Simulated assay, not measured.
Amino acid sequence: MISELGTMGWLALVVAFGAIVPIIPTGAAVSGAAALAFHDHPLLIVLVIAAGAAGAYVGDLVMYAMCRAGGEQLARRLRWLRDEEHLAAVKERLHKSQIPVLLVSRLLPGGRVPVLLAAAFLGLSWRTFVVANAPACALWSVVYAGIGVAGGSIFPEPWEGVVAAIILVLIIGQIVNLISKRRAARQQAEAEAA
């Protein structure tokens, strides 16, 4: 049991670091851990979900603090701020409905950083962010652990389940990115036509 807790601690650290450095595939880490837990001891999946959610939550808090402290200057230096029009649209959506936007942004690949920037630039209160981000991180962890369990349940060997979970996460991420790009292109075309 002690080794499992240590493993979950490492998972939380990897996810927290990945939330701060957004190039690390944190969803794949949670999915892979859930696939392994499914084969080792299915009740460990609850610990995987808790570790993933805790890591995501801590990482998001650090990232939000960086966005609030550094502002647009830090965002430009780290190249987080690429599309001013997209950021303006996110700010508008966030101003209208804060909690749903924070929830959805955690689930969309590449959606979290623009929303955190917009929230910081709008001056979203810490209290609102802390409260709204907790269920977002929990939901994110449950979704990616579910992907891992699905991958782990299909294949008899743990390593096959981990590979399947990671591939599934990558495919889902690419599909979501493709849909987002098509939607943005369609909106831009409609705006140009109007």
Rank of each mutant, 00 (worst) to 15 (best):
V58Q: 06
E85W: 01
L74V: 12
V130F: 14
S125E: 05
L78Q: 13
V130K: 08
V58F: 10
G110S: 04
P42C: 00
L36E: 02
R112S: 08
W80M: 06
A89R: 11
V101E: 00
Y64V: 03
M63K: 14
L81D: 09
F129E: 08
H41S: 11
E72P: 00
L124C: 07
H86K: 10
H95Q: 11
L139F: 02
A56P: 00
G52C: 01
L108T: 06
L139K: 00
R112M: 12
H41Y: 14
T128Q: 14
W140G: 05
A69Q: 14
P100H: 01
A69S: 15
L107Q: 09
A88G: 05
W126Y: 07
L74K: 07
E84K: 10
G70N: 14
A138S: 12
L94Q: 00
L116V: 10
E84D: 14
L117I: 15
A134P: 12
A89T: 08
G70K: 07
A65T: 09
R106P: 01
F38E: 06
L103E: 01
P100R: 04
Q98D: 03
L117T: 09
W80E: 12
Q73V: 15
H41D: 14
G55I: 00
G123F: 09
C67I: 15
H86L: 13
A88T: 05
L36D: 01
L36Q: 02
A56I: 04
L94I: 00
V115G: 05
L81K: 10
C67T: 10
M66P: 10
S97D: 05
R76S: 01
A119T: 08
S105K: 02
Q98I: 10
C67R: 15
P109Q: 06
A120H: 08
L74D: 04
G123W: 03
L108A: 03
A134S: 10
A56V: 04
V48D: 00
F121T: 13
N133S: 13
P109F: 03
L139G: 07
I49E: 04
L36V: 09
G71S: 05
A119Q: 06
D83V: 03
R68P: 15
V115D: 02
L78G: 05
L124G: 12
V113A: 11
P114V: 11
G55L: 06
R79P: 05
I45D: 06
I99L: 15
L124K: 14
D83H: 12
R127C: 13
P100C: 02
A54C: 02
L47T: 10
V104H: 01
R68I: 11
A53L: 02
N133P: 05
S97Q: 02
V48G: 02
A65G: 15
M63Q: 10
L108Y: 01
A138L: 15
E72F: 04
A37I: 02
L43E: 11
S125Q: 03
G71P: 06
L139R: 04
I45P: 08
A134T: 09
R77E: 11
V90I: 15
W80L: 07
Q98T: 13
S125G: 09
V101A: 06
V46G: 07
L108V: 07
L47A: 14
L43F: 13
L81R: 14
H86D: 05
W80V: 00
A51E: 13
R106A: 02
L124M: 13
